[in-house]
């Protein structure tokens, strides 16, 4: 999931990767950097989403050299969208793109399975998201403080982990603001009793 707040955006994810009923990785990092302050949350096929993120990363790098200026989250979202749409039959990728720049003060784009783009104040995706649609809709507020938004994200993800068998492990959070990039990890013994 990714959430816009007062100072920027936060991205959050659990850390479980499964192959059937087997947990292939319990400390996965699903929050992937594609540019300095443009990140994405990957859900669906690990292989597909890693590949797509790599391609977008390349394009954003190219964009920087060609234009002599950094890309926006909107540009990144457009690239993700184009790839997921043109390859919709082959891909299983649910992506959320979030980025911070001084002009927009943070943006969140949701790019679900078919390759559409949705600019949203917050977005959730992946198997666990089904369990927290109601909770997030009820508890989301515009312009939350950093502390509030971290709490919001942590609570939502802890509920997703609790009810979804395919989600679990630690909660990873990335915070993108004018200050910089901050990373947080919350272990199960903490969020299980949240």
């Amino acid at each position: 999931m990714a959430v816009k707040f007062k100072d920027g955006v936060v991205l959050g994810a659990d850390s479980r990767t499964t192959t059937g009923s087997y947990i292939a990785n319990r400390v996965t990092d699903k929050l992937t950097q594609v540019y300095d302050k443009i990140w994405c949350c990957r859900s669906g096929s690990a292989a597909d989403t890693q590949a797509v993120a790599d391609i977008v990363k390349y394009h954003l790098d190219l964009y920087t050299t060609q234009h002599g200026k950094p890309p926006t989250a909107r540009i990144a979202a457009s690239l993700f969208q184009e790839i997921t749409y043109t390859n919709k039959d082959a891909l299983s990728a649910g992506l959320i793109v979030a980025g911070y720049d001084d002009k927009t003060k943070g943006e969140v784009y949701s790019i679900p399975l078919g390759g559409s783009v949705h600019k949203q104040p917050y977005a959730i995706a992946g198997s666990g998201s089904a369990f927290i649609y109601g909770w997030t809709a009820k508890n989301f507020k515009e312009e939350m403080s950093k502390e509030e938004v971290i709490n919001f994200t942590k609570t939502a993800l802890s509920q997703a982990i609790k009810w979804d068998g395919s989600s679990g492990g630690v909660i990873r959070i990335v915070i993108l603001t004018a200050e910089g990039i901050e990373r947080l990890v919350f272990y199960p013994d903490e969020h299980e009793n949240f």
Binding site: Q66, H67, R74, I75, S78, L79, E82
Partner: peptide, 15 residues
């Protein structure tokens, strides 16, 4: 526009 879903900037076009 097809690639980035926004208008090309003039400096980039001229390049």
């Amino acid at each position: 526009r097809g690639q980035y879903k926004e208008d090309i900037t003039v400096p980039y076009l001229i390049d």
